[in-house]
Nucleic acid binder design. Structure first.
Lengths: 222, 222
DNA sequence: ATAATAATGGGACATATGTCCTTTCGGTAT
DNA sequence: ATACCGAAAGGACATATGTCCCATTATTAT
């Protein structure tokens, strides 16, 4: 099967005309195997990542050592864009969940060639404001609703066309939703008792989506 | 005392050179008395607001009618910037807390004259990524820490050079922190019993800042 | 001066949630 | 086949938190 290149990915995501040749020359494909870390919170930041294949986990630790998973990311998405604009160190830790391919773009190449490119600046505004909206919604959601609603919303959102969640670990799921592993288990057991899901060794299948929607319907995570 | 104008506010905030004359001509000063609403969530959005004097409260209602206060804003800040980029309806309700002055800038004026102004686009990127950082930090904070830590951080953050909080109502404070009015009262009573604050009819004075910092120090809200 | 209203304050009750620790079970290595 | 390890599962206990409702007090309107 033909190997993907920077050019073919940019074409696939309609970005070929966005970047002049000398920026594309500076771009490099890189593939990480699942479990490997791209970078860690607090490190110096000099590269913008475009996630083009696979799945990334974005997390951070509190000063007390408690981990919070901020997001799982899938293509197409930027990582390091906020740090690029703000010129600060990396805010979060990012790891590959599955085999993952990114395009690495040195900040320097962007600064030399894209700083006054209004199409690029507008594109960044689009993507960053979209992230802001999602973040804002997620924050409101977590402040307004208890853990059971948040779990239900997560399960429903993660299975738009399917009934089985992909194999996210339960510890990761708890850290994403912002609750303890123990409590997540309680809630999932309740959902099983209600007849909404089947749960076996962390593998979750939704068996009565309509009933869950009826119960939680107004509050679906997106 | 001389009345402020659009020009004098733009000068005060170093924005005179950012906007060409025809955009400045379209700007209008408007003053709202405390308690008055600028606009409500869900309304059509056609104006970018620059808050130049006073204090605004940004809030929203859940489908169940529960209110969340997202932020209190003070000068200099944009309101409606996310909606301007995303071309969507207003995400939140905004009200004046005190007598408040804003500069209203029609989106149309910006679209006609600023869409390809790279200085403006960069400026928006700066301010929006800053908001994103604050939002992200606030979200992480609320997921990682219980109500008592969040209350302490809020009290400490709101009194950088003073000992008495301004007169935010306790209901508003509870809605901002994302807890019930009842629970906020429990926490404040605890802080009073610990000798950290004096609380009388909702007026809060911090009387032992050092002790609070020692207890909660790693987790100050900014 | 008085009445009405709104904000403050808190009791009672129930549920939600975190922490700590142990047991079970499936996957992996030998 | 067996041992080891890590993820899943759940008991026990304590605290955090929400909900509902009522009493008190200060502010505002008459």
């Amino acid at each position: 099967m033909k190997k993907e290149t920077v050019s073919s990915y940019l074409e696939q995501y309609n970005l070929s005309t966005m970047f002049p040749d000398r920026v594309q020359q500076a771009m490099q494909l890189e593939t990480y195997t699942g479990g490997n870390r791209l970078f860690s919170q607090g490190e110096k930041s000099d590269t913008l990542y475009l996630l083009v294949e696979g799945k990334l986990k974005v997390s951070r630790l509190s000063p007390e050592g408690k981990r919070l998973i901020l997001a799982f990311k899938s293509p197409f998405d930027f990582v390091g864009d906020i740090e690029y604009i703000r010129k600060c160190t990396l805010i979060n830790t990012v790891e590959a969940v599955t085999t993952t391919t990114v395009i690495r773009i040195p900040y320097e190449a962007l600064e030399n060639s894209m700083t006054n490119n209004t199409e690029w600046l507008q594109f960044l505004l689009e993507t960053i404001t979209h992230k802001f909206e999602l973040k804002s919604h997620a924050m409101n959601f977590s402040l307004l609703y208890a853990v059971d609603v948040r779990v239900a919303s997560y399960l429903l959102a993660m299975t738009p066309n399917d009934t089985t969640l992909d194999s996210t670990s339960l510890v990761d799921m708890a850290d994403l939703i912002g609750t303890s592993y123990r409590h997540l288990n309680r809630v999932l057991k309740q959902f099983e008792e209600q007849g909404w899901i089947l749960k076996k060794r962390g593998k979750i299948t939704i068996i009565n989506r309509d009933s869950m929607l009826k119960q939680f319907g107004n509050n679906i995570y997106e």
